[in-house]
Design a protein around this nucleic acid. Structure first.
Length: 219
DNA sequence: GAATAGATTGTCT
DNA sequence: GACAATCTATTCT
């Protein structure tokens, strides 16, 4: 007798009643704040992307803040300003895309103010309906947590890549919409062993108990 | 479930 | 020419 489900049975991860078509972009003022604040408040927000496959969306469940030039883990560490990092030095509310390990794209949001090269990495999202476009791009079912539980995986699923470098998130095909999260956890950032003393900063934020969080947080 | 190796390319030295 | 804010398949237990 499965398949029969009352409202009270609905699991916390079921967002089937959320209508992504009606979500409005967050204003630039959301991004023009300290990067740690933006990173924390992005948990629960929704990434919306429209292209010729239709609409694709995911609810953010994990982020990391990068705060150059002092943060040795950031690509803007030490004041580094090149063609790749240029968008981080500009106004907030734009997309910073970069290629990882020669294969996977990662999606970041530029935060704080112009001249402050700060950004927030989106590490994991929870798929939102319609899930068909995400399943097609990844070649797997939305029932699997592997669909979007990592920076490279979510970009592949949502159709994000190099053409989104520098995209304005306040009025375009790609934006963030407001959303709530309860029980936000905090931990060290992932895979930044090269960053010296900055390795230990608790600048990773995630929704506790959400099955799409990329790795089990260490206590 | 945990550990390991291999893939593959833009960016910077 | 080295290396990277990773993912996947495979091989263990």
């Amino acid at each position: 007798m499965r398949g029969d489900r009352s409202a009270g049975d609905r699991s916390a991860g079921d967002r089937s009643d959320l209508d992504v078509e009606r979500l409005e972009p967050l204003p630039r003022s959301f991004y023009a704040r300290p990067v740690l604040t933006v990173a924390k408040e992005m948990v629960g927000a929704v990434v919306v992307h429209r292209d010729d496959r239709g609409i694709s969306a995911g609810r953010i469940v994990e982020t990391e803040a990068y705060r150059g030039p002092e943060d040795q883990a950031a690509h803007s560490a030490g004041g580094r300003r090149t063609a790749r990092t240029e968008v981080m030095w500009g106004p907030p509310g734009h997309a910073y895309m970069f290629l990882l390990y020669g294969m996977h794209w990662a999606f970041n949001v530029v935060a704080a103010g112009e001249g402050q090269p700060h950004a927030v990495l989106v590490r994991a999202v929870e798929p939102l309906p319609p899930v068909a476009p995400l399943e097609q791009r990844r070649g797997m079912s939305a029932k699997k947590r592997e669909l979007t539980n990592g920076p490279g995986k979510l970009c592949a699923a949502l159709g994000l890549g190099r053409r989104h470098y520098g995209a304005d998130l306040c009025g375009g095909e790609l934006y963030l919409a407001a959303g709530e999260a309860s029980r936000i956890g905090r931990s060290k950032r992932i895979n930044i062993d090269y960053a010296g003393a900055w390795v230990d900063k608790p600048w990773r934020f995630y929704e506790r108990g959400n099955r799409y969080v990329s790795v089990k947080p260490r206590a």
